[in-house]
């Protein structure tokens, strides 16, 4: 199986603050992996580096074998990277449908009718159809998170980067979300999912990567990773020495 995503020696610094250090891992096409780690571990920054929203200070990012390290986020989206933001960034004055249409038109590169159909499909998958004509600025927080998913899906991604979209959901909503993401995985989309709701994550992914203080400390099947001494130390006390 070819690799959809290859992260090689990624580092990211803001002035003297090192947020990511020598992070390396690969994701085979069609695999769903989860990224865990305490707050401030650098998970969202890593997702931003993969999507091109942030530039890496060092290292390379390869999408389907192509080096995209110097490629901007808009071009990475057109190459098949879809992402959600941990703090939703809706286009507040556009309707929910138009938010998705934006992704379908530019990210997926579809013409008018095809783009509209794609946007409608994305809204249905994300269970946002009822809000189609609502200005995104009027949505409650959870619906905004769903909109993030809908917009990312509208770009027709082959790699989907999800950043804490299960946070704050009820158990029933979380189950529904797990089902949706499982279906996306089964349809062949490669998924990289950052999540604190570990039960939701492990229901979907076949592999976990754990970051702590910007460093990758574990990578493997979910059970092994969650029981590894390094991960337990990070989550249950002591921190990284």
């Amino acid at each position: 199986m070819s690799n959809a995503l290859e992260i090689k020696g990624i580092a990211k610094s803001y002035a003297s603050l090192r947020v990511l250090e020598e992070v390396t891992f690969t994701v085979p096409a069609g695999q769903a992996i989860g990224i865990v780690g305490p707050n401030g571990a650098g998970k969202s920054t890593l997702l931003s580096v993969i999507s091109g929203t942030e530039k890496a200070s060092a290292g390379t990012v390869l999408i389907n074998g192509r080096d995209v390290t110097s490629v901007g986020s808009e071009d990475r989206t057109r190459m098949g990277i879809g992402r959600t933001f941990q703090i939703p960034r809706p286009f507040t004055n556009l309707t929910v449908f138009e938010n998705a249409l934006s992704g379908a038109t530019f990210g997926a590169g579809l013409k008018r009718k095809a783009a509209e159909d794609k946007a409608l499909e994305a809204l249905e998958i994300a269970e946002m159809m009822q809000y189609a004509n609502t200005p995104a600025g009027q949505l409650p927080l959870l619906a905004r998170k769903r909109l993030e998913l809908a917009r990312a899906l509208a770009t027709n991604p082959s790699i989907l980067l999800l950043d804490e979209i299960a946070g704050g959901l009820t158990e029933a909503e979380c189950d529904s979300l797990v089902q949706t993401i499982s279906q996306l995985r089964d349809s062949g989309i490669t998924i990289v999912w950052i999540e604190h709701v570990v039960q939701a994550l492990t229901a979907v992914v076949s592999r976990l990567v754990c970051l702590a203080s910007g460093t990758l400390i574990a990578d493997g099947d979910p059970k092994t990773v969650m029981q590894s001494p390094e991960v337990l130390e990070v989550y249950l006390g002591g921190g990284i020495k």
Binding site: S51, S73, E74, R78, F85, P90, G107, T155
Partner: peptide
Amino acid sequence: VAAKSMGI
């Protein structure tokens, strides 16, 4: 930022 992520 989100607009760029939509491929714009």
